[in-house]
Amino acid sequence: MRSLIDITDLSLAELDSLIATAQDIIAHPEKYAEACHGKKLATLFYEPSTRTRLSFESAMLELGGSVIGFSDAGNSSAAKGESVADTVRTVECFADIVAMRHFKEGAPLVASTFAHIPVINAGDGGHNHPTQTLADLLTIQREKGRLDTLTIGCCGDLKFGRTVHSLISAMSRYENIRFVLISPEELRIPENVRSEILDRRHIPYEETTDLEGAMPKLDILYMTRVQRERFFNEADYLRLKDSYILTPEKLKTAKSDLIVMHPLPRVNEISTAVDSDPRACYFKQVLNGKYIRMALILMLLEVTV
């Protein structure tokens, strides 16, 4: 029985296999329509989500399975003070697999240590978001045709941006990857990501506050939102929220085959005028997220098609 808590729980071979399955699902959806018939996914979302929860739910429905769960901790026994361990041991009586989002870091790991069914981390605080990374990898593979030899610019909140941490962790395992880390000083990448992923694996990277200066070098621009919910101090949020706003003007010096990614939701960090640019890929990421989650559910439930 496997769970997915951190993107590094998956080997490169397993990542390749998931991407291959997702591509096959895209090409032949009918083959998978009943693959999870009789299986139930429980979505335990202690924190608000649109994309991730609906993506998991539609992934399971398109595999012929069904879905139970809650989308607000206030609607669960967590509001009465129930522990994550007790909640997951209750839920496993009703479901075959769990997708959990929690505002506290490490909650899905706690769930996985108590559960006897697979647990998928659907985002834990500012820590990890491995299935977003799977969606990102599938998008990069489909749009760039490769997962190696890329210069990736990560821009915005690199301190609390869990999607960025997982993306760096995953992409650092491929050959010839280079990062340009663009953020305000206060939202720089955490020390552990720098020292234990980038430095340890000898991945070339530069840190800068200058988005325009970095733009011409990039194959991928991964924008992130400055997340109000991660700040304890509203004044800090207000000061930093408009640090980077991507506009068509700023894209003028970018490569013609750049792809612009964003885990969404966006607030104002990508102008809506960028949406019609063929390089904008963020809504493709959303769709790819459903397909890769279908592949992941199949893998963790050990369903073969």
């Binding site: 994550v84 929690h102 505002f103 506290k104 870091e105 490490g106 909650a107 706690v110 820590h127």
Partner: peptide, 10 residues
């Protein structure tokens, strides 16, 4: 000591 860690509430 991380106030965002699950150990801070459990």
């Amino acid at each position: 000591k991380n106030p965002r860690c699950i150990t801070s509430i459990e």
